[in-house]
Write a protein that binds this DNA or RNA. Sequence first.
DNA 1: CGCAGAATTGATACATCTCAAGCTGGGTGG
DNA 2: CCACCCAGCTTGAGATGTATCAATTCTGCG
Lengths: 248, 248
Amino acid sequence: MAHQDLQLLSHDCGDCPIRHRAVCARCEADELARLEQIKYYRSYQAGQTVVWSGDRMDFVASVVSGIATLTQTMEDGRRQMVGLLLPSDFVGRPGRAQAAYDVTATTDLVMCCFRKKPFEEMMVATPHIAQRLLEMTLDELDAAREWMLLLGRKTAREKIASLLAIIARRDASLKLRAAKGKLAFDLPLTREEMADYLGLTLETVSRQMSALKRDMVIGLEGKRHVMVPDFDKLLEETGDDSDGGFLV
Amino acid sequence: MAHQDLQLLSHDCGDCPIRHRAVCARCEADELARLEQIKYYRSYQAGQTVVWSGDRMDFVASVVSGIATLTQTMEDGRRQMVGLLLPSDFVGRPGRAQAAYDVTATTDLVMCCFRKKPFEEMMVATPHIAQRLLEMTLDELDAAREWMLLLGRKTAREKIASLLAIIARRDASLKLRAAKGKLAFDLPLTREEMADYLGLTLETVSRQMSALKRDMVIGLEGKRHVMVPDFDKLLEETGDDSDGGFLV
DNA sequence: CGCAGAATTGATACATCTCAAGCTGGGTGG
DNA sequence: CCACCCAGCTTGAGATGTATCAATTCTGCG
């Protein structure tokens, strides 16, 4: 576990890679200092479960590095992913004692955890945290609604293209590039996880990946590395408005 | 427009039917007084569009009475409902200039609107508003995630049963009763709106309604009035955990 | 009464699921 | 170092649930 060292390290918030995007983004130096007192790092290996739905949860956290998923499971085993958590994303709900979803690390994962009680107290005392959390929650709600359109109305091919576009965009933003023209990235999800994200079976995911490859929309190197010769062409396959809605 | 009169009426917040549930729920008397200064009522007839996606939106609002929907539409006309707004629900996003979704009144609708600029200023000044809005947004996010499970993994029959259960529960809570045993309510949505909610076609909605009626899970009086002889039996059809998750 | 919108019902098409059989590549133990 | 193994993935064939297209039937209302 390469990140194990982080677990004990009292990492300085000033150097934190997600400092400017996480729930603490708006905090002043003194507020950060107080957060430092209630925070601790935890690491998880790819595949590990972070919390089970229904479990008591006495912390909230920010994803520092790696990717986690939120999933719901029905009695008969049908599964639907309902959240994809990337670095800087927030986990947990202030004021709630039990987890509502399964949280799983899909890659090696490092989280910056805050003990819930003191965090909740800080939320009341320091509006900067509550303000930022509201903003992040509203963004998540927008993403969830986009996702609902995908689940309810898009075809399998459109779903796959949409997911690839989302991952490509996020990868580009991480590399501080614009998502356009020719690009390439690694899929952080297995076919089955993609299926759970998209409301499909893994076989359908596989078939549509092959179809997009056959139609030269994407190239594949191994199972995980995706090459996109023309990002606009991929976007055309998503079914979304071409003039990508940029709403402030 | 029967409600036009309300539009000018400077209604007293103290008498407001949604006083204890809306975004203003936590406000003190002096805070309410300031809200009163920036608020105004607007009424819409059933079927009217409140705002179009992409339109400039210079207010945020609470639904006072009636029902509104949030929908997204794809270029080729496919539509997905992404929000169902009931009395006390909040419309609009502080800090965003343009509407992200179409908002439509499905019944006659009265909204309590706040001019956006002063509302945003109040949000900063009075934490009670921001706190309540965060709480409401987190609830909406949970609802959206439940909805994602429905869209991605449930069968048509389960979708219909789930929607009926949701409406039954909400109707019961409005009448201050528990949702159990025998109950009855009016559908606030047309078959087409139900279809847009559920990611189905209206024909499939109609067929599954007929099937649930045939199987004595529900009774129908006219198209809109639904009778449920045994709420538990309806819940069994939703596919959800029987021990309905009650997460604080 | 008769019309228009809403809903139901039927017949058929089709996308996706299901079940099943191989394939692939990376790791492991002999 | 090779053979094997296994999880992850691909591909195929057939089943099935929902969409589509089309024809009625309701229902409320002018």
